[in-house]
Design a protein around this nucleic acid. Structure first.
Length: 601
RNA sequence: CGGGGCGUGGCGCAGCUUGGUAGCGCGGGUGCUUUGGGAGCACUAGGUCGCAGGUUCGAAUCCUGUCGCCCCGACCA
């Protein structure tokens, strides 16, 4: 390709609406254009990058025995009602774009394709002998994100590779899951990305085991915890750790003391010479379940701990056997609108009486109570006495009476704590961009959608399923976030829009022009993805553009062209080599093939 | 949805407080000079100041409404 024909339009100024470096560089390099919030056009350079990525993905998945397919984007609501996800995905803060057709039928734009594929496979496959299968597609997905941001990182329309596997039993699912894990590691490596694999929450998709592949970057939206020795890594949503030991509370006679204006853990500590780990903190949540039930939740945890809302949601949903649409903290405003009296916030104990809920208009009239292990393990402690300005001191669980509560893990694991792996190594904290996610779904969807096969015993059985995603467009941007400098993008060679750029420094010099053209056609004939900068621009402009758009290898044909000397420079290097044109060609081949090799091994 | 901010040529911004009919840098075009790290000079094109009302002799500027975008929280590839 010639730059003169490439419609290369680069920006010198940073567009005001781009916050993170990768987004800025994509805009400045003319890779993408925003059309509306969270919706971008992939310009020709970007599309080349995306195609390079999808080619790698295809190669690896085909190698792993997966089948490529293409599923519809318009989904009938019936299908989603059958799986029980329609409400969760469309009501309130749901993320599915949905619409009605001219007959008034409800349709949704696919944010993910479990329903469609599960239904189809159930109709197509009949016998265990046909299993396992693994189908994938590379498709535009639609999610009406509450807040789209950072360019392609969180778009409302984005390209995703999603795959779904179907198995006759769990063992076979686990096997495929491992195989996909390996394929994913190869894919990310070949794309030149450094990823960290972490244990993950399976979220709205549901299912059992799940892991995420994270590109570490400060701009990442996820917090991940990694043990220093590398034996444990997890998304904070999922992470478990060994909590710090509580500071022992000295023995004392249980009493109820006045604690005027000490409604926070902090003031309570300061005024009574306590450590936060000696106090039980109680937080009230309102949880809305699928179907609309509103359930008040009372959570007790140790005062020095924070509540992990994802874990909490999972516990609620386990307890209530229903999907949780949303949780939020209970505030006085909410109490008032329920027609309830004020609850003594700041002085609540784990034994807060259900009678506070007696007159609730729509809420369930009792608390569903969860206690974190850290709190449950305290022998004696300080906690709220459920009256303004009063706390119990030196209390224990027995004194609080018979509480119907479930002891669970709902605390946030934090950096500095010890990992649960044998080594008990320290946890450190990093931010990550999720580029891939693999799930063992189990039979959630196949059961809901009545998608069955006949097993060895001749009985109908729901498929065991796995699902596997890669954010293709996000991956492209994550690669930039991970690899750039003050001059622009530094693409890994395998996904760069071009592998080599030849810059003719001065187009008016015939030696330069001829030699540049010669090298260009030579490389092109050898199937190198080469770009020739043949513009009537000053050399500086061409260098700046080549750096900005991030082409990994640069050949400059300049003032020494008449002596057959040209320059070779890697984008990631500072210094260029001056060599004969023959030598430069030789090294270019070596570089291109070795980089591809290194990345794919 | 809650909180914060912004809409002025393709991009980045000034002007708005104190109304008088739009300006700067980059980019575009033409010409001359220049020619290895976003060149210089000259000329030039390009804007119903997001949109709709209102106040006023007069509105980018003041008022009301509305739409859009960005940032901070719940979502996820």
């Amino acid at each position: 390709m010639r730059v003169s024909r490439l419609m290369l339009v680069t920006l010198r100024d940073i567009p005001a609406d781009a916050e993170i470096i990768s987004h800025q560089l994509l805009l400045r390099g003319g890779y993408i254009k925003r059309v509306t919030a969270g919706v971008y056009a992939y310009m020709p350079l970007m599309w080349k990058v995306i195609q390079k990525i999808t080619n790698i993905v295809r190669e690896e998945l085909n190698n792993a025995g997966c089948l490529e397919t293409l599923l519809p984007q318009l989904h009938p609501s019936d299908l989603w009602k059958e799986s029980g996800r329609w409400e969760g995905y469309t009501a309130g803060e749901g993320i599915m774009f949905h619409l009605k057709d001219r007959q008034g039928r409800e349709l949704g734009l696919g944010p993910t394709h479990e329903e469609v594929i599960t239904k189809i496979i159930g109709e197509v496959l009949n016998s265990y002998k046909q299993l396992p299968v693994n189908l994938y597609q590379i498709q535009t997905k639609f999610r009406d994100e509450i807040r789209p941001r950072f360019g392609l990182m969180r778009g409302r329309e984005f390209i995703m590779k999603d795959a779904y596997s179907f198995h006759k039993n769990k063992a076979c699912l686990v096997q495929s899951y491992e195989k996909m894990n390996d394929a994913y590691e190869k894919i990310f490596k070949r794309c030149g990305l450094h990823t960290v694999k972490v244990d993950a929450d399976s979220g709205a998709i549901g299912g059992a085991a799940s892991q995420e592949f994270m590109v570490t970057a400060n701009s990442g939206e996820d917090l991940i915890l990694i043990s220093e020795d590398g034996t444990y890594s997890a998304n904070q949503e999922k992470a478990i750790s060994i909590p710090e030991k509580a500071v022992p509370l000295k023995n004392g006679t249980p009493t109820t003391k006045e604690t005027k204006e000490q409604c926070s853990i902090e003031t309570l500590c300061v005024n009574n010479n306590l450590h936060a780990s000696q106090i039980i903190k109680v937080v009230l949540f309102l949880s809305i379940l699928e179907g609309g039930e509103e359930i008040p939740i009372l959570v007790s945890t140790r005062g020095d701990q924070e509540i992990n809302e994802v874990k909490l949601i999972n516990e609620i949903s386990k307890e209530k056997k229903k999907a949780v649409l949303n949780i939020s903290q209970i505030t006085s405003d909410k109490l008032i609108s329920q027609g309830l009296n004020c609850i003594p916030f700041g002085y609540i104990g784990p034994d807060l009486s259900d009678s506070f809920l007696n007159n609730a208009s729509t809420w369930e009239r009792k608390f569903t109570r969860f206690t974190d292990h850290t709190a449950a393990n305290l022998n004696h402690f300080v906690c709220g006495a459920n009256k303004i300005d009063l706390h119990h001191f030196y209390f224990n669980w027995e004194l609080l009476g018979k509480l119907k509560h479930k002891t669970v893990d709902i605390r946030k694991a934090r950096a500095g704590e010890h990992s649960i792996s044998k080594s008990k190594s320290n946890l450190i904290e990093k931010r990550g961009i999720e580029v891939g996610h693999i799930f063992q779904l189990g039979r959630k969807y196949s059961e809901a959608l009545d998608s069955k096969f006949t097993n060895e015993s001749g009985l109908k059985e729901a498929f065991w399923m796995g699902c596997y995603g890669i954010g293709i467009s996000r991956l492209a941007q994550a690669a930039i976030e991970q690899s750039n400098d003050k001059n622009g993008i530094i693409w890994p060679l395998s996904i760069a829009p071009f592998e080599v750029v030849i810059i003719i420094a001065n187009l008016k010099d015939n030696f330069q022009k001829d030699l540049g053209e010669k090298l260009y056609s030579y490389l092109k004939n050898k199937n190198i993805d080469v770009l020739l900068d043949d513009r009537e621009e000053r050399a500086g402009v061409k260098f700046k553009d080549a750096d900005l758009i991030g082409i990994p290898i640069r050949i400059t044909v300049g003032r020494n062209a008449s002596e057959d000397k040209v320059e070779l420079k890697k984008r990631s290097d500072i210094e260029a080599l001056v060599l004969s044109s023959e030598e430069v060609l030789k090294r270019t081949f070596e570089e291109v093939s070795s980089q591809k090799q290194v990345l794919s091994n």
